[in-house]
Amino acid sequence: MPTALITGASSGIGKAFAQKLAAHNTNLVLVARSEEKLNQLAKKLQEKYKIQVDTLVKDLTETGATHDIFDAVQAKGLTIDLLINNAGFAEYGDFAEKDEERQIKIVQLNILALVDLTHKFLQGMRQRRSGSIINVSSLTAFQPMPYLSVYAASKAFIVSFSQALWAENRHYNVRILVICPGPVETGFFTEANFPPALAAKTNKISTCEQVVRESLQALERGDSMVVIGGMTTHLITKLSPFVPRKILLNILEKQFKTKTV
Rank of each mutant, 00 (worst) to 15 (best):
Q217R: 12
A9Y: 06
E97T: 07
P181G: 12
Y172D: 07
D81S: 11
N25Y: 10
Q143G: 04
S137N: 12
G77W: 05
T55P: 05
H234S: 12
K37R: 15
A199P: 02
K246P: 05
L252M: 12
G229M: 02
S224T: 06
F188V: 05
Y147D: 04
K257C: 05
F194L: 08
S224M: 01
A87Y: 02
A16Q: 02
F70T: 13
V31E: 02
A164Q: 06
M1P: 02
E97I: 00
L78T: 14
L83G: 02
A65H: 08
G124H: 03
F256C: 10
T190E: 14
A200C: 04
I111N: 00
V212K: 05
S206K: 01
A42S: 15
N25W: 04
I51C: 10
E214R: 00
E36Y: 11
H24F: 09
L165T: 03
I176G: 03
I80V: 12
A16T: 07
F188A: 05
T186W: 04
R129Y: 09
L198Q: 05
K120Y: 07
I133T: 09
H24Y: 11
A152D: 10
K43A: 14
G88R: 13
Q108H: 00
A9W: 03
V136C: 02
A113N: 10
Q163D: 09
E35R: 14
Y151H: 12
L122F: 07
E36A: 13
V261I: 01
G12R: 06
E35M: 10
A72Q: 14
